[in-house]
Amino acid sequence: MTDTKAAAVGDRVVHKQFPAISRHRLALYCGASGDHNPIHVDIDFAKASGFPDVFSHGMLVMGYLGQALSDAFPPSRIRSFSTRFAAITQVGAELTCEGTVAELFEAGGERCARIALTTKDQHGETKLAGEAVVAL
């Protein structure tokens, strides 16, 4: 774990890489998350809906980003966490999650950091862009 108390603006405090997303992973996540939308696991349904293949749940990708975030900051210190889903994450995507300190401020009597977060695939395409506020 990083010494986050000494974090300065610009420091990269979150960084984690994940293995390629397989179809099996999507099936597991379907059950683990309760999101049974067939578009993520049933190629016939995906094609009928106009997509060339199944694709990842956005929340699986955000789950990976959340894991990278809570590797650096325990959940009791995370005050908020938000993302925009910038692009569909395809089967085979190898994700890298990163976060840098964007701002240090006081809120509710706590010293806090705003962390700018991204998740990119192996081609450098941004899949998620977001931020978290953490208490230091």
């Binding site: 067939p38 956005g58 993302t83 889903f85």
Partner: peptide, 18 residues
């Protein structure tokens, strides 16, 4: 709304207690 026509655009969480 048809399930095959929806995508997730944004998601946020604000945590108040464990």
């Amino acid at each position: 709304i048809d399930l095959g026509r929806v995508l997730h655009g944004e998601q946020s969480f604000t945590y108040h207690a464990p």
